[in-house]
Amino acid sequence: MQKVDSKAILMGIAFGVMWASAFTSARVIVQYAPPLHALALRFLASGLIGIVIALAMGQNWRLTRNQWVAVVVFGITQNGLYLGLNFVAMQTIEASLASIVASTMPLLAAFASWAVFGEKIKPLGVLGLLAGVVGVVLIMGARLQGDIDLFGVALCAISVISLTVATLAMRSASSGGNFLMVVSLQMFVGSAILWGPALVFETFDVTWNWQLVVAFSYTVLVPGLLATLIWFFLVDRIGATPAAVFHFLTPFFGVLIAAILLGEKMGSMDIIGVLIITAGILAVQMSKQKPTSL
């Protein structure tokens, strides 16, 4: 694992913007198409494009054992559960709220690292976790006073737990090269497990218009393929836990993009809550930094 350098920071910011934009494009898609069908098709398209590019780049199917683990675990937890549940949830909740819930992932990852892997958390890290809880409570408290779909929020909460599992699974499964091939194959895993629920629970009823075409195409190419590829490179470069800090960009950019493109509003408690969550995430990450000798 390398130190976080300027290249890693640029990669992380690019990932954060792309990842956050997916909430807005997903919100548009589910207004005109059934969410699970749309997501299964998105993964199928992203996977096919990715494999063609990977083969053209000289990559191959000979993955390491850890990479095959990453393909299956990441495909199920991130693509199938995290994104699948988010797509369903955004039929009834705003993109900004979904992005705020997703921003708690680094805090959950830090907590799980302590609870599951026995990593020690310094006092600053404990304060960061508590700050994250306070921020979420403030946001949820303000939102609950308005018209909010609790079932949709619950789906987002389950989805972010799945994303935490996906991130922790990358601790030992991100090396070995063939990154684009790995990304493409885990897209197929996500598509495969979504087709069953899509065919059972949904009717393929689509309202075709330019908004749907643009949103779907963007989601396939940018958040679906490019952002995931950058994430794999970032985790390989600096490690899963340091890379997770860039998810703190999700609420800011998620709310900003949703406000610009969808006209969604954010109240004062949302702003305060996002700032507290961000401070909490940074505190957790700072607590993990080893002091450097002069």
Rank of each mutant, 00 (worst) to 15 (best):
Q2K: 12
Q2A: 15
K3C: 12
D5N: 15
A8W: 03
M11C: 11
A14C: 15
F15Q: 08
W19A: 15
W19R: 00
A20V: 09
F23Q: 00
A26F: 02
Q31K: 06
A33H: 08
A33R: 00
L36I: 14
A38K: 04
L41S: 07
A45N: 07
L48R: 00
G50Q: 00
I51K: 02
I53F: 07
A54W: 03
L55C: 11
A56K: 01
M57T: 10
T64M: 09
R65I: 14
N66T: 11
W68Y: 13
W68H: 08
V72S: 05
N79P: 12
L81M: 12
Y82L: 07
L83F: 12
G84P: 07
F87K: 00
Q91L: 07
I93V: 11
I93K: 01
L97P: 05
L97S: 03
A98M: 04
S99N: 07
I100N: 00
S103C: 11
S103N: 03
T104M: 10
T104W: 01
P106E: 07
P106H: 02
L107N: 01
L107F: 02
L108G: 07
L108N: 02
L108I: 12
F111Q: 03
F111D: 04
W114F: 15
V116A: 05
F117K: 00
V126G: 10
L129W: 01
L130E: 07
L130S: 13
G135P: 05
V137K: 00
L138E: 02
A142S: 12
Q145D: 14
G146F: 03
I148F: 09
D149A: 10
L150H: 06
L150T: 12
A154V: 14
S159N: 05
V160C: 01
T164Y: 05
A173R: 00
A173S: 14
S174R: 00
N178C: 06
L180P: 13
L180N: 07
M181D: 06
V183D: 10
S184L: 10
F188A: 08
V189F: 01
V189A: 05
G190V: 08
G190S: 11
A192D: 07
L194I: 06
W195F: 15
W195N: 04
G196F: 14
P197G: 11
F201H: 04
F201L: 13
F204L: 13
V206L: 06
V206Y: 01
W208N: 08
N209Q: 13
L212I: 14
F216W: 05
S217G: 15
Y218M: 07
Y218H: 06
T219A: 14
T219V: 10
V222G: 08
L226A: 13
L226Q: 05
T228N: 13
L229A: 09
I230W: 01
W231Q: 03
D236E: 15
D236P: 09
D236W: 01
G239H: 04
G239Y: 04
T241D: 12
P242V: 04
A243M: 06
A244G: 14
F248S: 13
P251G: 09
F253Y: 06
L256H: 02
L256E: 03
E264S: 12
M269Q: 07
I276H: 04
I276E: 02
L282A: 14
A283I: 05
A283N: 04
A283P: 09
Q285R: 06
Q289A: 15
Q289N: 09
K290A: 15
K290V: 15
L294V: 15
